[in-house]
Simulated scan of single mutants.
Amino acid sequence: MNHPKIDVRRADDRFTTKIDWLDSKHSFSFGGHFDDANTHHGVLLVNNDDIVEPGTGFDTHPHQDMEIVTWVLGGALVHQDSEGHSGVIYPGLAQRMSAGTGILHSEKNDTWRMKNDPEPVHFVQMWVLPDEPGIKPGYEQREIDHELLAGGLVPVASGMDKHESAIRIHNKYAALYAARLAPGQSVQLPDAPLLHLFVPRGTVTLEGTGTLAPGDAARFTATGGQRVTAVEPAELLVWEMHATIS
């Protein structure tokens, strides 16, 4: 049996990819950044915190056998893929792409086409391993902005039966929640074998642990149910997981 553990990872300790159009912070090994002791937590392999400058972005590139969830915090991200899906992802609109047997897609900050005052787009992209390889590629999005106004944890993407309204991912052991908290508001984390809490914006206090600042994360093993309270306006992304990668 695993011993209860909360492993806090600070924002400044993340791997960084910084070029003229991209500022990307990687919570786990990614691309040219590799640490054998930091490849995943549960079934979560990627938690990239990205800022992309206007008129730039990720050109068409391939993915395979991965569930990819994108959450925009500011600005707008234009998605296009080889399955014919296209759209603009903005704050409060969750997106899931199942790479399955193989898919090509691009992600661009095209705010300069849509407004007179273009701005960087800030988003978090998370990759989860699917239950099985070789599924049919797919795409789904859902508007949950109004649900976030209540201040609680809102199911965003899930493979669990208990989350009928969430975007479906092909992993029955994982679910993603989001929350927007005003100062003083709090939420209780799920009680699950594995949790990943990421604070993309704002400052919060984690019960029994202390302060988490923007970009900080906490990895929970065999413990859950703690309260997270906002010190200032904050946003949370929480993965509940009931399995891990062997």
Rank of each mutant, 00 (worst) to 15 (best):
P54R: 14
V88R: 15
L44A: 10
D36L: 06
V52L: 14
W71H: 13
A76M: 14
I51V: 14
T70G: 02
V52A: 12
G84H: 10
H85I: 01
M66D: 04
E53F: 03
A37I: 01
A37L: 11
Q64F: 00
G55A: 11
G87T: 09
V69D: 06
D36F: 02
H40D: 02
D65Y: 02
H85C: 04
H79I: 01
W71L: 12
I68Q: 07
L44V: 15
G87L: 07
V78Y: 11
A76V: 10
D65A: 02
I51A: 11
T56I: 00
P54E: 13
L45E: 07
Q64E: 14
I51Y: 04
H61I: 08
A76T: 11
V46M: 12
H63F: 07
V46D: 09
D36H: 11
H63P: 00
I51S: 12
D36N: 08
D36P: 01
E83K: 11
V52M: 13
G87V: 03
V69P: 08
G74S: 14
H79E: 02
D59E: 11
H85K: 07
H85A: 08
I89C: 06
L77Y: 10
G84E: 06
V43D: 04
N47W: 14
V72G: 04
S82G: 06
D49L: 07
Y90P: 00
Q80P: 00
G84M: 06
E53G: 01
V69H: 08
T56Q: 12
S86V: 03
D49S: 08
V78C: 02
V88C: 12
V88A: 11
V78K: 07
V88P: 09
G57H: 09
G57E: 08
D59Y: 07
W71F: 14
